[in-house]
């Protein structure tokens, strides 16, 4: 800011500037305080659990003695969330593409956009009950509680998050890029596949990850659609264990050892989502097209 050309910045403006910068620093700090507190709390309560046996044995149900680890819960969560992701991310991004590339400012697009926002406000427990009355009680796809029904419930939660965040990101792809590709004679689908999506990829991944993080930690939909199992199970049409339910059930126990397992499971869940986040960021970083 060479004062030679521009009039000097008044003390008041400078003060405001400093004050506001300070506020931005402070806000970021405040946002991170709860994270540190929660992680610290989880480590304090649950880190003592981490051992090879914790990750390689299933909960036994034993009250005293060997209560077992959380292997089946970890695998069940990975399996169910992976399937929910396979359902919700493609659909969510597809809807976002439609909104940005085709629907644009039209009435139908406005309605869909509105509905997606409304969908984010549907409580997870209501989606759980919805799947319960439409899939579980009716016994569709084999009787009763099943892992795939849990995945469907989770994907309903993830879908609006993926769609809305993807839309925001796709909206930001400069129109110039689209137009120049179209002007070069590329068909619309190629423009979308080779220009729009790669440009928006990091943002799309961020949105999907937020959705995965949300989906992985939900308890209520699983309670009404899957329910807990003890052992390992790869059959999607049966009950499957999961980390949120393991936490939910264990924390109510009167046995302090079981409660500690709940905190260990919670720490595991957070680390698991962290690992997924980091992995996806690295993938995104590698594949990003430099504009």
């Amino acid at each position: 800011m060479s004062t030679g050309i521009l009039p000097p910045i008044s003390a008041r403006r400078r003060r405001t500037d400093r004050l506001m910068s300070g506020l931005f620093y402070a806000a970021t700090g405040i946002a991170l305080v709860p994270l540190l507190l929660i992680i610290g709390y989880l480590i304090k309560e649950g880190a003592s659990q981490f051992s090879a046996a914790f990750f390689t044995t299933d909960p036994t149900g034993n009250f005293a003695g060997d209560i077992g680890g959380i292997r089946s819960a970890v695998l069940g969560t990975i399996e169910m969330v992976a399937i929910a992701t396979l359902i919700s991310v493609p659909i969510g991004i597809a809807v976002a593409i439609w909104l940005v590339e085709y629907g644009k400012r039209s009435k139908p697009a406005a309605i869909i956009r509105y509905l997606i926002d409304v969908m984010t406000g549907v409580p997870s427990v209501v989606f759980g009950l919805f799947i319960y009355v439409s899939l579980v009680e009716t016994g569709i796809g084999g009787s009763g509680f099943a892992a795939w029904k849990g995945s469907v419930a989770i994907s309903l939660l993830m879908l609006p998050i993926v769609a809305r965040s993807s839309e925001v990101v796709l909206e930001l792809v400069p129109n110039g890029l689209r137009e120049s590709a179209l002007a070069l004679g590329a068909p619309r689908w190629r423009v979308i596949a080779t220009v729009v999506l790669p440009t928006a990829l990091p943002g799309l991944i961020t949105g999907s990850l937020l959705a995965v993080a949300r989906g992985a930690g939900e308890t209520a939909p699983l309670l009404f659609t899957v329910q807990a199992a003890m052992g390992i199970n790869f059959n999607l049409s049966e009950r499957m264990n999961s980390l949120p339910l393991e936490i939910f059930n264990d924390v109510q126990s009167s046995n302090p050892a079981v409660v500690t397992r709940a905190w260990g499971a919670a720490l595991t869940l957070v680390l698991l989502v962290l690992a997924i986040t980091l992995l996806a960021r690295i993938v995104a970083g590698r594949s990003r097209l430099k504009p």
Binding site: F55, T56, R71, V74, L75, I78, G231, I232, N233, F234
Partner: peptide
């Protein structure tokens, strides 16, 4: 995760 996954034996 791989370790966890491989540790499993079918029931």
């Amino acid at each position: 995760l791989v370790i966890v996954a491989c540790g499993g034996s079918s029931s």
